[in-house]
């Protein structure tokens, strides 16, 4: 599509109802920029959104979109992409949507490595249901349903992704507008499953993983000598406690997307008016 698409073309006329200051505003801006900068057009883009505050993103953006069932956004996105590889497919949702109820799909979407992107707004809390622990909440994080903390190790989504065969792992901070948009752009451009975990603070229910916290603890890998193609180095960063790394943490330069490996040539949407010409051969097979 033409390069005169502006990021604002991906914005719908619906005003977001997120709390003022919610990290999801910044996350969404970066997604719109990433899509526009990679030359996509809303009419050729399909966004699948999860359920949660984060999942409202499908409504606030303009494109073809489906806002589905809690935790099932990834398989929907994969189905869209395989049926019509000409579309740009982006899936977006929350940490609960992706790493709790949808954790099974996350692992398998990573393995399948379809050429699409997946943006998780990780606020380490269930925002929409008003502040319960999420799979990425800290062990001692007290909420209405975990008064003594979760007493469980938080999920490390990046480690989960890497060990499942991820070919692109990025992590960003929603208020670092420029680097967030850049990593999302790279995830879109990546030949395969571009996964980006976004620190997208919930200002209403999470008073631990705040803007201040992230600002103080983030190290931007872009400013270090980290080589994203080095899988071992990526693993080391990912398993390290205490530091929150942002940037492209891992990218397999030789990634070949699933649809290519499977020989999917083009869109499956065009079909003849009747049975295929040689369909009687299918019957003869049973002779």
């Amino acid at each position: 599509m033409s390069s005169d698409v502006r990021f604002i073309d991906f914005k719908s006329d619906k005003q977001p109802t997120w709390c003022p200051g919610c990290g999801d505003f910044g996350t969404m801006n970066g997604m719109m920029k990433g899509l526009a900068e990679t030359g996509n057009h809303p009419d050729d883009t399909f966004i699948v959104a999860g359920i949660g505050c984060s999942g409202k993103i499908g409504t606030y953006m303009h494109s073809y979109a489906l806002h589905g069932v809690h935790g099932r956004a990834l398989p929907v996105g994969i189905g869209v992409k395989l049926a019509n590889p000409d579309l740009e497919v982006m899936v977006a949702g929350g940490d609960g949507d992706g790493y709790s109820i949808g954790a099974g799909h996350f692992v398998h979407a990573v393995r399948r490595n379809v050429d699409m992107s997946y943006v998780v707004m990780d606020n380490r809390i269930y925002g929409l249901t008003k502040g319960q622990a999420s799979p990425t909440s800290r062990e001692d994080f007290e909420t209405s349903t975990t008064p003594d903390g979760t007493n469980q190790t938080p999920v490390n989504p990046l480690a989960l992704a890497l060990s499942s065969g991820a070919t692109f792992i990025g992590q960003t901070f929603s208020s670092d507008a420029q680097s967030h948009a850049e990593v999302v752009r790279k995830a879109i451009e990546h030949d395969g499953f571009g996964f980006v975990n976004v620190y997208s603070p919930c200002v209403t229910f999470n008073d631990v993983d705040t803007y201040d916290y992230f600002r103080d603890s983030i190290v931007d890998l872009g400013e270090t000598d980290h080589d994203p193609a080095d899988r071992d180095a990526a693993m080391e960063r990912i398993m390290e406690g205490g530091t929150e790394y942002t940037g492209v943490i891992y990218q397999d330069p030789d990634s070949v997307p699933y649809e290519q490996r499977e020989g999917i040539e083009g869109s499956m949407t065009e079909i003849p008016d009747g049975a295929p010409d040689d369909a009687m051969d299918l019957v003869r097979e049973f002779y």
Partner: peptide, 11 residues
């Protein structure tokens, strides 16, 4: 959900 996605894409 995969089938649903494919159907929304138009297959």
């Amino acid at each position: 959900n995969l089938a649903l996605g494919a159907a929304r894409a138009g297959a």
